[in-house]
Design a binder for these strands. Structure first.
Lengths: 342, 342
DNA sequence: CTGAAAGCGCTTACAG
DNA sequence: CTGAAAGCGCTTACAG
């Protein structure tokens, strides 16, 4: 009550629920109900409490509520990158799905690193999240263990889990890789290269699809693959185009594991005077905004990014609420966007 | 102690500090110290506690700690967009600066909306953040009021505050807008258009710089400006190029308020057979990755995105720690990148 | 260096 | 519909 403001007290010095209650002439419990379950409070008292809140400028203390209720109202989201437009699109979907529910979203950027993912997950676990959204299917043993121990609902995004109990939302990366390769094959291309960076699990699964299609066509050749661990950028796409051509001069098509690489490869072709698609067909992945507008426009695989985030968050919400979860595994599919570059 | 696991108890059912302490044969206080200030605990006890933590799989409860210590170890960051590469670059800098300090970062996407900003800030205030990072200088009265009431340290990013006490990190948007216009003028261009989207405060300040330069050159003409409120995209850049040209056929240069618009405008020129920069010079803003690689490469203004985030977070940290904050206003400058498009 | 007591600001679980 | 009691899991502020 009478703490001198200069004394370093352990309290925040902010307005508390009790003060609101006192101001409104009710018990703290009633003030709490007026805020969280107003329908259980008589109109008169509810108004008195609302007035007190406004007059005092009351801001609820989330930590206290979390501690008392054992519910954090926190959802943790782990994505491998924020600079990659792919994941910001997924995040937009998540935000929209979660927006009405008043959850606090913890966004963690793992930077494609298992160690970072472990660190972030451990940090987030301390907030007792009500649910977790993860990118991809494969995680380190320690991450798997933390998840198993906590028994928090988890939804995986961007690929489909083969495990029966697991919740996942996305599409088959293998099938999508296969589809693009098949498309290039159908266009009559024979020497089709696969160019990939980052080497995350999705990139590798697209490579599987590529190999399957090439094998079926009797055109498989390891020399056609160029996979590097560096982060995927336009600059890298430009560089890899050069290396690819040096390795396989008779190349007639390239499937880039994503659009950044494809854009870089196309810019490089323009600088070298290689005509796309006449001399070299180029396919990308994810259909980033520039792909539709570049000249030549980029043939690529349209993927349900926003929707993946939206559906994954919705599934997680349903699971948190304990309602019967219809589909544990939501296949959103993909679309081959045939344009000018291939 | 003996709660049946089927009973819905108010507790989380997780291992607590007290259990760790009991397991290690010490008081809870000692276990707490072993975790937070290990140097104050004897080696023997420290090891016993560490062992107990491992064996029990203890995860600290952040809410309890926050409540008891009146310190949240949370920093809230509000950015107007996540799909815009500008802000993800800023975020990367923030993450790197904050990484060693074990803060939890709350990333809020205001979507360029004052209402959203208010909503997010109010939600974040409930977590009692130790500090706040804001984008831009201008905010709604309610946001200003929340900030003032809370007395939480705030650092503004992306522009320089004229207010003496305020902390800000960025560069002068007006000066940068002026510099690009001056550059086009120096190239001998006369009918220089300004094309802008979103109409956020930065876009408007760049417009001020543009107008100043045009006025000084005696070439100012309101007809040369095309400002629209829609979000900035490549598609919009392509569309605005058309509208601009229809309005001012003799246009010989365009300053686009950002690179997305510039890319769209250039793609549109390529589709219409307009040569850049011969017939039309095009300048952009922010130096996104594609700008260096496109053909023609894009003349633009390089801005210290990552650094802004890094320095802003560092300044905030210093302010939270109460150390003498050297510069309240950090001007990181900008760089005109002269390339092929202008 | 170690610990017993009290309290942070809420909500749960009961009563009435 | 309203409220008094107890407790969530930690840390502060004191003692020893």
């Amino acid at each position: 009550m009478s703490k001198s403001p200069t004394t370093k007290s352990r309290a925040l010095g902010k307005v508390t629920l009790s003060e609101v209650a006192a101001h409104a002439g009710v018990a703290p419990m009633t003030a709490s109900r007026a805020i969280n379950q107003p329908e259980l409070v008589s109109a008169t008292l509810r108004e008195r409490v609302d007035k007190a809140i406004l007059e005092l400028g009351y801001v609820p203390n989330r930590a206290a509520r979390a501690l008392a209720s054992a519910q954090s109202k926190v959802i943790a989201v782990l994505v491998p990158s924020l600079s990659n437009a792919v994941f910001t699109a997924v995040l937009a979907g998540i935000q929209d799905a979660l927006d009405p529910c008043n959850y606090q979203i913890l966004i963690g950027n793992t930077r494609y690193s298992d160690a970072e993912e472990e660190k972030l997950l451990f940090a987030y676990m301390q907030s007792n999240p009500d649910g977790i959204l993860l990118s991809g299917l494969t995680h380190s043993p320690r991450v798997q263990q933390m998840l198993a121990t906590s028994r928090v609902p988890v939804v995986s995004m961007m690929d489909l889990s083969p495990e029966p109990g697991a919740m996942s939302v996305g599409f088959s990366q293998v099938d999508a890789g296969y589809a693009m390769t098949r498309y290039l094959l159908d266009k009559g291309r024979k020497r089709i290269g696969y160019m990939a960076a980052q080497l995350d699990e999705r990139t590798l699964r697209r490579a599987e699809g590529y190999r399957k299609a090439m094998r079926e066509a009797g055109l498989a050749d390891p020399a056609l693959e160029l996979l590097v661990p560096e982060p995927s950028t336009i600059a890298l796409g430009a560089e890899l185009l050069g290396r690819m051509l040096a390795k396989v001069p008779e190349l007639d098509a390239i499937f880039c594991c994503n659009d950044d690489l494809a854009h870089g490869a196309i810019f490089q072709c323009q600088r070298r005077g290689i005509s796309v698609p006449e001399q070299l067909a180029i396919g990308g992945f994810n259909d980033l905004p520039a792909s539709a507008w570049m000249k030549p426009s980029v043939t690529t695989v349209g993927t349900p990014l926003y929707q993946t985030g939206f559906e994954a968050a919705s599934l997680l919400l349903a699971s948190i609420r304990g309602s019967e979860v219809a589909a544990q595994r939501i296949d959103l599919g993909f679309t081959l966007m045939a344009r000018e570059s291939a």
